[in-house]
């Protein structure tokens, strides 16, 4: 049995996937840019962008979304860091069972989790609105903050801590001078995994605020779903892509490796 020569070279095995990536990842992203600079009849235009910067609704929502995303990210760091720190301390927690309990919600549909938050608020007779939005978003994204930080702290060489102690550092000093600086990469990937999805969130904000507060993602979705505003929707998506690009460059693309750390 003879086999084609190119199969013998194993590096060629990636070719089908490379073609797949080109068609379903690279070209579609370019299409966002193409559509963003087009009007409904297909000609070149900048109108979609001038509309974004002059029409207050989209711009205000955009700024509001960034604000909400910053608050959510802050809450997730403040609540998540201590949790990650305690979880990674083997003197305090034995085994992975507790860790799994913390990351399990990551795998439950975000809509269901948001609906569960609504159920909780209904149950406690608390009105939905901005507070519910921030609580719900922090609740939804907290595991994505805890897990990367936990992983980073876990990988810190414990002999650094012993060295710090031997050299006379107090517990607090060894935390602020050793653990905290070394866990920055974890915090950065946590920020990447909380901040970006929060801005682009749609549906969730509608559910948590009974449609009174809208985030940028909802505006994108609304425009995208109608054929006459599709180009404007594409322009808004491009703005989103630019934000992603900036955030990824600023954080040095540390997030991607942690997303699959679960497996």
């Amino acid at each position: 049995m003879k086999s084609p020569v190119f199969l013998m070279k194993r590096s060629n095995w990636a070719i089908p996937y490379a073609l797949f990536l080109a068609l379903f990842v690279v070209i579609p992203l370019f299409l966002i840019a193409v559509y963003a600079f087009r009007n409904t009849s297909g000609g070149f235009t900048l109108a979609n962008f001038t509309k974004f910067f002059t029409q207050s609704e989209a711009l205000n929502t955009f700024i509001y979304s960034i604000g909400i995303a910053l608050v959510t990210t802050g809450v997730c760091i403040l609540v998540g860091y201590p949790a990650a720190y305690i979880l990674s301390n083997s003197e305090l927690t034995k085994g992975r069972a507790l860790v799994i309990l913390f990351i399990l919600p990551m795998w439950i549909n975000i809509l269901m989790r948001s609906l569960a938050t609504v159920a909780l608020f209904d149950f406690m007779h608390i009105k939905l609105g901005e507070g519910a939005l921030i609580f719900g978003l922090s609740y939804d994204f907290l595991p994505f903050m805890i897990y990367p930080i936990y992983n980073t702290i876990l990988k810190i060489d414990k002999s650094y801590l012993e060295a710090a102690r031997d050299l006379g550092a107090t517990r607090f000093q060894s935390f602020t001078h050793v653990i905290l600086p070394l866990s920055v990469p974890g915090i950065v990937s946590g920020i990447l995994m909380v901040f970006l999805p929060t801005i682009s969130t749609f549906a969730i904000s509608e559910i948590l605020t009974l449609n009174t507060k809208r985030l940028f993602g909802s505006i994108i979705q609304d425009n995208m779903m109608m054929s006459d505003t599709m180009n404007y929707g594409a322009a808004l998506s491009l703005v989103m892509l630019v934000i992603i690009g900036i955030t990824t460059v600023l954080t040095g693309d540390k997030g991607s490796s942690d997303q699959t750390a679960l497996i």
């Binding site: 490379a18 299409l31 970006l196 801005i199 682009s200 993602g217 594409a234 997030g255 991607s256």
Partner: peptide, 26 residues
């Protein structure tokens, strides 16, 4: 190829969704 492989993991769902939507429309 590794960089491109990371893109769908970094992109928020809405961007992946919209970009594919535009592909299928085109």
């Amino acid at each position: 190829i590794q960089f491109t492989n990371n893109i769908p993991m970094i992109n928020p769902d809405i961007i992946t969704g919209i970009s594919l939507f535009l592909l299928f429309v085109s």
